[in-house]
Design a protein around this nucleic acid. Structure first.
Length: 157
DNA sequence: TGTCTCTAGCGCCCCCTGCTGGA
DNA sequence: TCCAGCAGGGGGCGCTAGAGACA
């Protein structure tokens, strides 16, 4: 019990002795640091047994498996038939029942139910909107090119 | 005591769909 | 009527943090 308490107390301190040598970000535990470093190196030790996907953490793999393979959706809406793999998705869904819009645009009366919608909306205010569109279409072009290259590689193998 | 593992949570991006206003 | 722009709803993954389990 005391060791659990001691460990919990550490979460209230800013002590993060484990530092990433690649980006200098600090972490509380070695495991967190290792996971973080894996995101730099692309190391994904948790491989899905049913497809080609691989992940940095076991949690990500478990979630992927629920989304793609087991189709298990433990979070159920009490007001309708909607169910979700993740609690946060259910939370977002419930806002469509309650009408809650916590994310306000500071330039107009628009308010959004989630952060990304607000971000997307903000683009319509921006003088850089056109630039964004150009960049976005360039990104899509590059992505399509990479996909094509990947497909060619797979055919080649 | 340190590490692994699970769960929770926030964030980002994307897709599909429906509505609306202008051509 | 068609089309572009925009917002709503939701799927899927990236990453971090806290806490239980275990060697």
């Amino acid at each position: 019990i005391m060791s659990s308490l001691n460990r919990h107390m550490k979460t209230h301190s800013d002590e993060k002795p484990h530092v990433c040598h690649l980006c200098l970000k600090a972490f509380r535990t070695v495991t967190l640091l290792r996971n973080h470093v894996n995101t730099h190196t692309g190391t994904r030790p948790y491989k899905c047994s049913d497809c080609e996907m691989a992940f940095v953490t076991s949690g990500e793999l478990a979630r992927h498996r629920r989304y793609k393979h087991t189709l298990e959706k433990p979070f159920k809406c009490s007001m309708c038939k909607y169910s979700s793999v993740e609690a946060s998705k259910l939370k977002r869904h419930i806002r469509s029942h309650t009408g809650e819009r916590p994310y306000n645009c500071y330039l107009c009366s628009y308010a959004s139910k989630d952060t990304y919608k607000l971000k997307r909306h903000m683009v319509t205010h921006s003088v850089l909107f056109q630039a964004w569109l150009i960049l976005h279409s360039m990104c899509l072009t590059v992505r399509e090119g990479l996909k094509k290259k990947k497909r060619q590689c797979n055919i080649g193998m």
